[in-house]
């Protein structure tokens, strides 16, 4: 049988993609509504809901940090996976370069988000 039977490492990226997609579907519209529409227009939420002081406190709180980290990084991994496969469909076939580019960006974003969440303090 001419088929290569080398195990693919796709599961790693596919699970991150799946987790990001699940989070995006569950939280994405709500986050857009709160941060993009409700808070700036002063709907429902108190006027200082997204004020600097509140957000700083949120990002210094451990569950807050975890939430920000998960939302930022998993969304980016989801996007990277989609772009990687869309490039394949558009004619830039799966290769090490496009893979390194797409997942490299999400890895960089992950490291950056982690770094920012640490230096912002506790």
């Amino acid at each position: 049988m001419a088929h290569p039977v080398k195990r693919s490492n796709a599961p790693v990226f596919w699970l991150l993609f799946g987790a990001g997609g699940m989070l995006a579907a569950l939280l994405g519209p709500m986050l857009v509504l709160i941060t993009g529409i409700a808070a700036p227009l002063g709907w429902v939420l108190p006027p200082d809901a997204l004020s600097y002081d509140n957000m700083l406190a949120f990002s210094r709180n451990i569950p807050g940090k975890l939430f920000i980290f998960a939302v930022v990084t998993l969304f980016v991994w989801h996007a990277a996976h989609r772009i990687y496969h869309t490039l394949h469909d558009l004619g830039i076939r799966r290769n090490r370069l496009s893979m390194g580019f797409c997942y490299g960006i999400s890895l960089a974003a992950t490291l950056l988000a982690g770094y920012a969440l640490v230096i912002i303090g506790f």
Partner: peptide, 14 residues
């Protein structure tokens, strides 16, 4: 599953 684990197995499906 050996065949399916490969890139040319399940993981080429989008």
């Amino acid at each position: 599953m050996g065949q399916l684990h490969a890139e040319e197995g399940l993981w080429s499906c989008t």
